[in-house]
Write a protein that binds this DNA or RNA. Structure first.
Lengths: 235, 235
DNA sequence: TATACAAAACTGGTATACAATACCTTGCAA
DNA sequence: TTGCAAGGTATTGTATACCAGTTTTGTATA
């Protein structure tokens, strides 16, 4: 890992948090790696204080596992396991399902507008996936954009915050294992369409069920990918 | 507020976090109050470093609101509002509902054992409520114990962690407004019984629905209490 | 009395110094 | 060669010093 420059606008602690979190989500900081305050500080060109704060925050957000060694606590990057992945997807099913259910409460114009934006976002996602050489990061963005439409329009503030806190963990699994899943996005397209239809027709229960299915099925798809590749973070 | 002693076993930062969190949940630290690092440190008999860490954690956990003032951030105790309360209860409905649904996956002996323990916990809750002068804190504990049985037995690790992180916020609203709701727990008893029955009979969907209803109805009950008492944290 | 301006105090963010202790290394002996 | 003990090292937790804006206070003037 090369030395990372830190944005000087923001607080150093926040910049460090984001830098480290992105490294973990992208898989550049491998599961099991130990985070030493001094090393983090040196590598990011800051002092121990903000480095420590970043590590504490990462831990609180569940990106690290804490190991008590006497009076001190050692932190390592959290491993990726099948059980944890399924757990995560099941939670996203519940949370985003809850948001989907709330779409039926939206005033009709807003609901239809949301359905249209989701349709457009899905179209962009589909058409990029069908390119000759789709860019992986871009594919990610477009997929997230679809779900973001739903969450941004329908989730309550706390629900939104909760989803935003869980999503990076999902992304971590997707980022590491997505290449193995391959370009077989057809099921995903169909599931997205079901969600859009339910939102347009205004049935909260159907929208919730469709969203739940989408996440549970995504979990199943990733499960197959993981069983091919094996877990990471152990040896 | 008198000076609080801090347990010396644990890390000072963790002790400070717990002390402050409890003060907020119990309503001793009123909504809107500003938390100044130096003051917190002095009052808890520690230095600014662990005091700061505690405040940062409280903020990340949503107990505080952050206000940017130039390069610094000011923290105040989060206000209590009707919208936020309803948001919270809706989220608990979703999360604990998800846990309830999972009870149907438990092996039958464990499921029946859970139903029995929930029944016992509910009995203790009911009988204490029917005393001449029920202790409020004890009533709280007993109510939490009922829900804990469900969560501990059925929730996945991440779901459990999520519920544990949301619950203190719910408790804050309950603690402040419960006295106004009054001793009319009959509806609660009935709803608990429905959950227990569904768990015993092994229907995940019914258990989820019953749990959702319980939380949504609790939200409605508290809504009435709040509309009587008015919001706190503004003036 | 109200307003403009200057000075002083406050306070968060960061760096650094200090303390404590678990763990590792090294050397010695069996 | 292996077990063990003593000392050294590494690294966390805490305290404190410093700086830079912000806010507040106080004063003078219209």
């Amino acid at each position: 890992m090369r030395k990372l420059p830190i944005a000087n606008e923001e607080r150093r602690a926040s910049s460090a948090y984001e830098a480290l979190r992105d490294l973990i989500v992208r898989g550049n900081l491998a599961p099991g790696v130990r985070l030493v305050e001094q090393d983090v500080a040196a590598r990011l060109g800051i002092s121990r204080t903000p480095a420590r704060e970043a590590i504490q925050r990462l831990n609180q957000d569940g990106f690290l596992t804490a190991l008590n060694s006497g009076p001190r606590t050692l932190f390592t990057v959290r491993p990726l396991t099948m059980d944890d992945m399924l757990d995560l997807y099941s939670i996203m099913a519940s949370l985003e399902g809850s948001a989907a259910r709330r779409t039926s409460r939206l005033p009709i114009p807003q609901r239809l507008s949301l359905a249209r934006r989701m349709r457009e976002a899905n179209d962009r996602f589909v058409s990029h996936a069908r390119r000759k050489s789709p860019d992986r990061d871009r594919q990610f963005e477009l997929h997230n954009a679809f779900h973001d439409q739903l969450v941004a329009a329908a989730a309550s503030p706390r629900l939104r915050a909760l989803i935003d806190s869980v999503r990076p963990h999902v992304e971590r699994y997707e980022y590491v294992y997505a290449p193995i899943v391959g370009p077989n996005h057809d099921a995903t397209f169909a599931e997205h369409s079901s969600i859009i239809r339910a939102v347009r027709e205004g049935s909260g229960a159907v929208a919730e069920a469709a969203t739940r299915s989408n996440w549970m099925n995504s979990g199943d798809r990733l499960e197959r990918a993981m069983s091919l590749a094996g877990p990471r973070g152990f040896w």
